[in-house]
């Protein structure tokens, strides 16, 4: 389980995150929802220790983050994190060089799944294929948790569909996923849990099936309450 407890983050004197708490369980897809600029990416960065926080705790399976955690949690930012001049195959080699948890068989699986070509250079890929290659680098790691920042933004419809398919496939298996998005439509039926952020804090976090069952509301209904109410 990833636990974010009372996280506070300031930029200068401005509090961008104030007392943010939520949990993400293994085997579940947790979605951080909020309009742009609400601090979703900052939360992801903070979980990965890529930005310091001004208060609160982040625990991963009960432990604070350390270098070994990176064999357990991986982050897929909204842009690819490999050198542009690398070929996909070279990027895979890099990953396998540095991560014990790299799963070459699954990486090759994903090459097929996404119909990518290992000999293509990253800077020659289309936006959609870049996003897929980016996903590959993260998902081919045998990690327990995957953090994805806006995996659907700025790419074509068919790539979106293909990426959405990842969530129902063996590629996610029993991992814990935290995903951020500002447009929920693509994945409304894919997620287990929604954490709604507004004004730098958690407005509401809920199990989406329970919400439908108990209140007969969709995620968008709740979002409407937040952002228009």
């Amino acid at each position: 389980m990833i636990e974010v407890k009372n996280m506070v983050k300031k930029f200068g004197f401005k509090k961008v995150l104030d007392d943010v708490s939520f949990t993400a369980e293994k085997g579940q897809i947790t979605c951080l929802i909020g309009v742009n600029g609400v601090g979703k990416t900052t939360i992801m960065n903070a979980i990965m220790n890529l930005t310091p926080i001004n208060g609160g705790d982040i625990l991963i399976d009960g432990q604070k983050l350390n270098k070994h955690t990176y064999e357990k949690v991986t982050f897929i930012p909204d842009a690819i994190t490999m050198l542009p001049q690398m070929k996909i195959g070279e990027a895979m080699e890099f990953m396998s060089d540095f991560y014990d948890s790299w799963n070459e068989a699954r990486a090759n699986d994903m090459i097929d799944f996404f119909r990518l070509n290992k000999n293509d250079r990253i800077n020659t890929l289309s936006k959609g294929n870049t996003a897929k290659a980016n996903l590959l680098m993260g998902l081919a790691l045998d990690v327990d948790y995957v953090l994805m920042d806006e995996p659907f933004s700025g790419i074509d419809m068919f790539s979106r569909e293909q990426i959405a398919n990842v969530f129902t496939s063996h590629l996610i298996e029993d991992r814990g996923v935290i995903i951020t998005t500002h447009e929920i439509q693509d994945i409304e039926h894919l997620i287990d849990k929604a954490v709604l952020l507004d004004n730098g804090t958690v407005y509401r976090s809920f199990d989406v099936e329970e919400l439908r069952e108990n209140e007969g509301k969709s995620i968008v209904d709740v979002m409407r309450e937040v952002y228009q109410g």
């Binding site: 270098k67 982050f75 930012p77 842009a79 994190t81 490999m82 542009p84 800077n123």
Partner: peptide, 13 residues
Amino acid sequence: GKNTFAYRLLTLP
């Protein structure tokens, strides 16, 4: 750089 490679370097185990 064109791709923020720091993400990768700082999340190496």
